[in-house]
Computed example of a mutant assay.
Amino acid sequence: MDAILYIVRGCIAWRQLPVEFPPAGTVYAVFTRWARSGAWQRILDTLCDRLRVRAGRDRCPTAAIIDSQTVPAADTVPRSSRGWDGGKRTNGVKRHIAVDVNGLLLAVVVTAASIQDRDAAHRLLAALRGSFTTIRLVWADGGYPGRLLVWAKDVLALPMQIIKRNPGATGFHVRPRVWVVERSFA
């Protein structure tokens, strides 16, 4: 476990594992076995459950906040997986995430940057509903209007509430609920 955490924390290659640890091949084999068995996901889920309870909330999340972030893609990312986001003037990918009210990740979908938020949200909300049947409300910013709201309510039984910008506000301002997902991106 120490060797795996050392690799993750240091962002190093397996072959660069110091000699104080077991052989890199052995550590990698254990990591792979745990990943395939779902052990890492169970550990993450247990830790998130404990954090929610410690914060005075239910163990299972009942609300989520969704948003997206466009990031530049490296030249090694195939053109078929990246796109141009005209609003951000970025050639890259878009990360769509759903978080609970504490900012803990619930679901992630990565698309080309050219995909509109409301289109990718179908996949994100389906993944969210598939993993968390306890979610009863989803908050989103103004990038998710229209038919998505009806689809989410009718097909997934996920009512959505859009948090709009304050009228007349210019530049950045903190909006209720949406700031949690923005903090998760940061």
Rank of each mutant, 00 (worst) to 15 (best):
I7P: 05
V8D: 05
R9N: 08
G10W: 13
W14K: 12
W14C: 11
W14N: 09
Q16M: 14
L17R: 05
L17N: 07
P18W: 04
P18K: 06
P18M: 07
E20Q: 14
P22H: 11
P22L: 12
P23Q: 14
P23V: 11
A24S: 13
A24N: 13
T26H: 12
Y28C: 11
Y28F: 14
A29G: 15
F31N: 06
A35N: 15
A35G: 06
R36A: 08
S37D: 13
A39W: 14
Q41K: 12
D45W: 04
L47T: 12
L51P: 01
R52A: 05
A55E: 08
R57F: 05
D58A: 12
A63M: 04
A64C: 02
S68F: 12
P72W: 12
A74K: 12
P78I: 00
R79K: 04
R79V: 03
S81A: 10
R82H: 05
G83L: 10
D85Q: 09
G86E: 10
G86T: 10
K88P: 02
K88S: 08
K88G: 13
T90N: 03
G92E: 06
V93Q: 00
R95I: 00
I97S: 00
A98N: 09
V101R: 02
V101G: 00
V101T: 02
N102Q: 15
L104F: 12
L104R: 09
L105E: 13
L106H: 02
V109M: 04
A113P: 00
S114Y: 10
D119Y: 05
A120R: 04
A121K: 00
A121W: 00
L125F: 03
A126G: 07
L128Q: 01
L128N: 03
R136E: 03
A140W: 00
Y144D: 06
P145D: 02
R147D: 15
L148S: 03
L149V: 06
V150Y: 07
A152H: 07
A152R: 01
D154G: 10
V155K: 14
L156P: 02
L158M: 13
L158C: 13
M160A: 09
I162E: 04
I162P: 02
K164W: 05
R165P: 00
P167Y: 03
A169Y: 03
T170R: 14
G171S: 07
R175E: 14
R175A: 12
R175F: 09
R177L: 11
R177H: 11
R177D: 05
V178Q: 03
A186S: 04
